[in-house]
Amino acid sequence: MEHNELKEKILELKEKLPVTLVAHYYQRDEVFELADITGDSLELARRCKADDKEWVVFCGVGFMGQSVKVIAPEKRVAMPKIACCAMARMIDSTYYDESVEFMEKAGIKKEDILPITYINSSAEVKAKVGEMGGMVCTSSNAYKIIEKGLASGKKILFIPDRCLGQNVANMMGLKSCVIGDGKDPNEADIICYDGFCSVHQLFTVDDVKFYRKRYPGIKIAVHPECDPAVVAVSDFCGSTSQLIKYVNELPEEQKVAVGTEYNLVHRMRDKNIYVLSSTKPECPTMNETTLEDVYRTLKEIEKGEVVNEIQVDEKTRKWAKVALERMFEL
């Protein structure tokens, strides 16, 4: 089916069915431009809850669809592709338990550990964190959530992104370590799990040096999933929504190189913007969803034969929601 014909059929089905099409910022343009709601992961989940349609067709990665189901269990959530965020896959229930055990073996009592999970994690992991008294954070509120957590006097176990955890520690003037790096966790305020975003690992200090040399006066803006060394030599570090705001508020003539996913960067501006990489930093899982997948999912809803409907068992949903609600309260 031709691109334009496929697009028209999707629009027709959207009008006909009780669905809201949702797309994360990192989705392909062809999918993104047809969405009713766009944004970053938590913003999407909250806006889906407020939406009045029966079905959410979520174009993103698996943990995002789960977040909608956790926050709004009354919604039916279908994903054209249940693509899996590589970072979220780096930690599961077993690895979480092993991380807690690592800290206990180092002499830190379980009751003195406060787990905080980045939203890029499965509902199962969020539930483990919720049961243990912990909470969820996003890249935009990680500083505030960790600051609140430290006020309890406990050690922070931060999962799964070591870079976000280390970058926040650096911003706060605190000590951090990564499980497996040989450092004593007793000497650290924030103990980070050794997970990372493969896309944001593509950006290097050499990339920053290259752009500063080529374009004197250029601004460098990066996501906190980038390596701490890259963040240290940048002009601005912020979440997806914060990066968009930062770039939009710069004078149009100001050159800026941005260290985050390609699809987002190339939609930010028409000129004087660069991707901070010698290669194309495109998230492979975010780019799995195609127009054909969206069309197929809408047809399945029409026929009542949905394949990729998101389900979360009640116990997992309960505790994952607790972890999310603790964040919302702040």
Results as ranks from 00 to 15, higher is better:
E2A: 14
E8D: 15
L11C: 02
E12G: 06
E12C: 07
L13F: 10
L17C: 03
P18A: 06
A23E: 02
E30C: 03
D36S: 05
A50V: 00
G62Q: 14
M64E: 08
Q66F: 11
R76K: 15
I82F: 12
A83S: 13
A86T: 12
M90L: 13
S93E: 15
Y95K: 15
Y95W: 13
D97T: 00
D97N: 12
S99G: 09
F102L: 02
I108R: 10
D112R: 04
E131A: 13
S140L: 08
N141H: 07
Q166F: 00
G173N: 05
G173P: 01
L174V: 12
C177D: 10
V178R: 03
D181I: 03
Y193I: 06
F196N: 10
C197D: 04
V199I: 14
L202I: 14
K209S: 11
F210D: 14
P216T: 05
P216A: 00
K219Y: 08
I220M: 00
I220L: 03
C226I: 07
D227M: 10
V231S: 10
V233I: 00
F236H: 09
T240Y: 10
S241M: 03
S241C: 10
L243Q: 08
N248P: 09
P251M: 07
E252L: 13
E253N: 12
Q254F: 08
V258G: 11
H266D: 12
K271A: 13
V275A: 10
V275D: 06
L276I: 08
P281F: 00
E282R: 13
T285R: 01
T290W: 01
L291W: 02
E292Y: 13
E292L: 12
K303S: 14
V307G: 02
V307I: 15
N308P: 07
T316M: 02
T316C: 06
K318P: 02
W319S: 07
W319M: 10
F328G: 04
